[in-house]
Amino acid sequence: MNVHPELAGVLAGMAPRPDDPVADIEATRAGFKALMAPLMRPDDGAVLIEKAAVPGPDGNEIPVQILRPAGAGPGPLPAVLYIHGGGFSYGELDGPSPMARDVCTETGSLVVNVHYRLVPEHPFPAGFEDCYATLRWLAANADALGADPARIAVAGASAGGCLAAALCLAARDRGGPAIAFQTLLIPCLDDRLATPSSHRITDPRLTNRAKMRAMWDAYLPCGAVSPYAAPARADDLSGLPPAYVLTCGLDPLRDEGLDYARRLMEAGVPVEVKDVPGAWHLFEASAPGTDLARRTTRHWLTALYAALTS
């Protein structure tokens, strides 16, 4: 593999991970929390955090965390629905994710960090419908929350990127709510796993095709696959919000992300694309101190800030 020079030492020290993260889901969830623990921020007063519960689509309650920049002015803030990744089955943390906090502090936005129902306990469409219900709640309560309903974006990484893209399709098809921008970070978009990159990345230390196959098998019930589950299956991408798409060179998802960006462009949707050669899926969590991780994070945050303030 053509590994980025800043990441070669990090990769050499990484251990193989199971090909089926769902097989022992409690161990996977604990392992992810341990990976993210060094990145969790102490309460430094920069972000005000409020917990709330959103009425769910099945009589359930959806836990959310509402993040506000401390010292924000009286005017309505742009708002971002941030959707965590983790193969639809893990990725939830005790506090707001570092990425959600970064969105709040670096873009000056109100951020709703949603804790949707997870696989394997709740396969599609449970998690997706939770996210859509939260989007509708955010738009309907924008005034009370101090958010600008004309500046609501969705953002997510990996499985969260899939859910963010699916929300844009659903909002278009279901008549709202209006979404101003979509930030799709290393998104998983296509359950067919037929791209060259999905076959090329086989290293067991990294997210690879075997892990993605296990994820999709757990997420999808039998039968036809909805575009709201795998957005790459959507025939029509016209009328969707402007997008930012981040991909990585050593990610099995790279080609499907680039393909989706190209199809958005062909449908007349403004798109900015950033590819990081020599980096793997969610490399920022493994190598947070590298210049490459900092530059990559800065790039997508800058694009999101520009979209919400232009």
Rank of each mutant, 00 (worst) to 15 (best):
V3K: 00
E6V: 03
L7W: 03
R17I: 12
D19S: 13
A23N: 06
T28E: 11
A30K: 05
L35P: 00
M36D: 00
A37V: 01
P42A: 13
L48G: 03
I49F: 05
K51L: 05
P55C: 13
N60Y: 05
I62S: 11
P63D: 05
L67N: 02
L67P: 06
G73P: 11
G73M: 12
P74E: 14
G75C: 02
L77C: 08
P78K: 02
P78V: 00
V80M: 00
I83Q: 01
H84V: 12
Y90W: 15
G91N: 05
D94A: 13
D94M: 01
S97D: 03
M99L: 13
R101Q: 14
R101C: 12
T107F: 07
S109L: 09
V114S: 06
V119H: 02
V119N: 03
H122Q: 13
P125A: 07
A126Q: 11
Y132R: 05
T134D: 03
N141Y: 10
P149Q: 04
I152T: 07
V154W: 06
G160L: 07
G161M: 01
A164K: 05
A170L: 06
D173C: 06
G176C: 10
A178V: 12
I179K: 02
A180W: 08
Q182S: 12
C188K: 09
A194S: 15
A194Y: 02
A194M: 03
S197R: 11
S197W: 10
S198I: 02
T202N: 10
T207S: 09
K211D: 03
W216T: 07
R233W: 00
P241A: 15
L246A: 11
C248H: 02
C248N: 12
D251S: 12
P252H: 07
P252G: 09
L264Y: 08
M265S: 14
V271Y: 11
V276N: 11
A279T: 14
E284N: 10
S286R: 08
G289I: 09
L292G: 00
L292I: 12
T302A: 15
Y305V: 00
A306L: 14
